[in-house]
Amino acid sequence: MKRALAVGLVSAQFVLLAALAFLPHGSLWPVTVVVAVASAALCLAGAVLAVLGVVGLGPALTASPVPREHAPLVTTGVYGLMRSPIYAGLIAGALGLALIGASVWHLVAWVALLLLLAGKARWEERMLVAEHPDYAAYGAHIGRFLPAVGRLRSPR
């Protein structure tokens, strides 16, 4: 069951990212130079953040939200700033795509991706707390997608 849910979540994530990239452009707002530059900056920052997250995980990296057994808990590098930098990078890059897309459907796809990744992160964190006793204390000090935002409640 856990494996099927993981595959479903990852598949839905890729479908939403593809939708953001390939939906027809809209006219919800004018795509000015400022919007184009902001979009490019968000896409670039998101890509850099996601790559730093991938590289930072090292042997703990998996495409699935289900953590690798006996993989080390990574709390340094970009993981010292936020718990889910890969997801944060995807959210930022997807926002850039939604900005340049300028349609209601782009916004809907971005919000759906945001909600999906937030739920996926929460599920993943429950498994990480079970796998790593130190994760709860780490999560109490480090934000989920942004530094200091979305910290876990302090362990009792």
Rank of each mutant, 00 (worst) to 15 (best):
residue 63 A to M: 03
residue 24 P to C: 13
residue 91 I to T: 09
residue 21 A to N: 11
residue 60 A to H: 08
residue 6 A to S: 13
residue 107 L to H: 09
residue 114 L to V: 15
residue 141 H to M: 02
residue 70 H to W: 03
residue 116 L to R: 06
residue 59 P to T: 10
residue 61 L to Q: 05
residue 1 M to R: 10
residue 65 P to W: 11
residue 119 G to N: 13
residue 110 W to R: 09
residue 54 V to S: 04
residue 97 L to M: 09
residue 39 S to G: 13
residue 28 L to F: 05
residue 22 F to D: 02
residue 77 G to T: 12
residue 100 I to E: 06
residue 24 P to S: 05
residue 34 V to D: 06
residue 150 G to E: 04
residue 91 I to G: 03
residue 18 A to Y: 04
residue 108 V to L: 15
residue 103 S to N: 10
residue 87 Y to E: 10
residue 109 A to N: 08
residue 116 L to V: 08
residue 69 E to A: 07
residue 145 F to Y: 00
residue 90 L to N: 04
residue 95 L to K: 07
residue 6 A to V: 13
residue 146 L to G: 13
residue 150 G to I: 03
residue 12 A to Q: 12
residue 47 A to Y: 01
residue 40 A to D: 09
residue 124 E to M: 04
residue 16 L to F: 03
residue 29 W to P: 04
residue 86 I to A: 10
residue 154 S to D: 00
residue 143 G to A: 03
residue 74 V to S: 11
residue 22 F to N: 14
residue 122 R to W: 14
residue 105 W to C: 07
residue 137 A to T: 06
residue 155 P to H: 00
residue 51 V to W: 14
residue 16 L to K: 09
residue 84 S to Y: 00
residue 124 E to R: 13
residue 15 V to I: 12
residue 144 R to S: 12
residue 133 P to G: 13
residue 10 V to Y: 05
residue 129 V to L: 12
residue 6 A to Y: 04
residue 126 R to I: 10
residue 39 S to N: 12
residue 51 V to F: 11
residue 30 P to W: 00
residue 149 V to Y: 07
residue 99 L to T: 04
residue 93 G to R: 02
residue 44 L to R: 00
residue 145 F to G: 09
residue 21 A to Q: 12
residue 132 H to M: 07
residue 108 V to S: 15
residue 101 G to I: 09
residue 130 A to D: 14
residue 45 A to T: 09
residue 41 A to R: 12
residue 47 A to P: 07
residue 52 L to Q: 07
residue 33 V to F: 07
residue 32 T to M: 04
residue 124 E to S: 09
residue 67 P to K: 00
residue 1 M to L: 14
residue 32 T to L: 02
residue 37 V to A: 13
residue 140 A to R: 01
residue 52 L to A: 14
residue 8 G to H: 00
residue 118 A to G: 04
residue 90 L to M: 03
residue 118 A to N: 02
residue 45 A to M: 07
residue 38 A to D: 05
residue 156 R to F: 03
residue 29 W to F: 01
residue 122 R to K: 12
residue 56 G to M: 08
residue 129 V to Q: 11
residue 150 G to D: 02
residue 48 V to A: 15
residue 38 A to N: 01
residue 119 G to F: 04
residue 103 S to F: 03
residue 18 A to E: 06
residue 71 A to L: 02
residue 23 L to V: 13
residue 32 T to C: 10
residue 87 Y to L: 05
residue 144 R to Y: 08
residue 64 S to P: 06
residue 104 V to C: 01
residue 154 S to W: 03
residue 148 A to N: 09
residue 90 L to I: 01
residue 39 S to E: 15
residue 79 Y to C: 09
residue 84 S to D: 00
residue 25 H to S: 15
residue 74 V to Q: 08
residue 69 E to Y: 00
residue 1 M to Q: 15
residue 128 L to P: 06
residue 70 H to P: 03
residue 67 P to G: 09
residue 5 L to V: 15
residue 58 G to Q: 00
residue 138 Y to I: 06
residue 156 R to G: 14
residue 121 A to N: 10
residue 49 L to K: 05
residue 38 A to M: 11
residue 7 V to N: 11
residue 77 G to N: 14
residue 149 V to W: 07
residue 26 G to K: 05
residue 67 P to E: 12
residue 37 V to E: 04
residue 139 G to E: 06
residue 31 V to G: 14
residue 98 A to M: 06
residue 50 A to Y: 05
residue 118 A to R: 12
residue 125 E to G: 08
residue 53 G to D: 04
residue 5 L to C: 15
residue 47 A to V: 13
residue 85 P to N: 00
residue 33 V to Q: 10
residue 91 I to A: 11
residue 70 H to N: 07
residue 141 H to N: 10
residue 53 G to P: 11
residue 96 G to M: 08
residue 156 R to E: 01
